[in-house]
Simulated assay, not measured.
Amino acid sequence: MTLGSSMSSGYCSWDEELEDCFFTAKTSFSRSAQNKTLVKIVAKPADEEKHKPLTVQELKQKIDDFNAKVKSCLLMKLNEDGTYTGFIKVHLKLRRPVTVPAGIRPQSIYDALKEVNMADMTDKRTSFYLPLDAVKQLHISSTTTVSEVIQGLLKKFMVVDNPQKFALFKEMQKDGQVLFQKLSLTEYPLYLRLLAGPDTDVLSFVLKENETGEVEWDAFSIPELQNFLMILDKEEKDKIQQVQSKYGRFKQKLQQTLKEAGGKPG
Rank of each mutant, 00 (worst) to 15 (best):
C21K: 14
Q256Y: 04
N79E: 12
K251Q: 14
L130K: 01
Q173K: 14
D81R: 00
L59I: 07
K69T: 03
L113H: 13
L207P: 03
E49A: 14
K71V: 11
A68E: 01
Y84A: 03
L183Y: 01
T99K: 09
E48Q: 15
E216K: 15
D120G: 04
N117F: 03
D199K: 02
V159D: 01
K165W: 06
L3T: 15
T200Y: 02
P131Y: 02
F169N: 06
V159T: 04
R31T: 13
Q57A: 15
C21G: 06
T85C: 12
L168G: 07
D133F: 02
I88C: 00
L113S: 12
S141I: 03
K40F: 07
K40G: 05
D123R: 06
G176L: 04
Q151D: 11
N35W: 11
K50S: 08
I150A: 01
Y247T: 05
F250G: 07
K251A: 13
P97C: 14
N227C: 15
D65C: 02
L92G: 10
L179S: 10
L203R: 05
Q61P: 07
G176Q: 01
Q242G: 06
E16H: 05
S8F: 05
K239E: 15
G86P: 02
D218C: 03
M118D: 14
T144Q: 01
I88W: 00
K26V: 06
K156R: 15
V100Y: 00
N35V: 08
G10E: 06
N210H: 08
Y191L: 13
K156G: 06
K237M: 11
K50W: 03
E19Y: 07
G176W: 00
K174V: 12
D201Q: 09
F169L: 08
G197Q: 02
I231K: 05
Q137I: 11
K246V: 12
D64C: 08
T122Y: 00
V56H: 10
V146N: 03
L92P: 10
F250V: 06
G266W: 03
K251E: 14
Q242P: 02
K253H: 07
P106L: 12
E115R: 10
P265Y: 01
E214R: 06
M121P: 03
V39E: 13
G266E: 12
D64H: 05
S9M: 08
K165M: 14
I63F: 05
Y11F: 11
L78F: 02
E187R: 12
A196H: 04
L38H: 07
P163I: 05
E211A: 08
F180C: 07
A46S: 13
F220T: 02
V243N: 09
Y247W: 12
M121E: 14
S108F: 06
F205Q: 03
A261D: 11
M1W: 01
V56F: 12
I63P: 05
E148F: 05
K114V: 12
K170W: 00
V90L: 04
Q61N: 10
E17Q: 08
Y84K: 02
S204L: 08
E48C: 14
H51A: 14
T126P: 02
G197H: 01
F157S: 09
Q226W: 10
V243Y: 09
Y11S: 15
T55W: 01
V56P: 13
P45I: 11
A119V: 09
S32L: 15
Q255V: 08
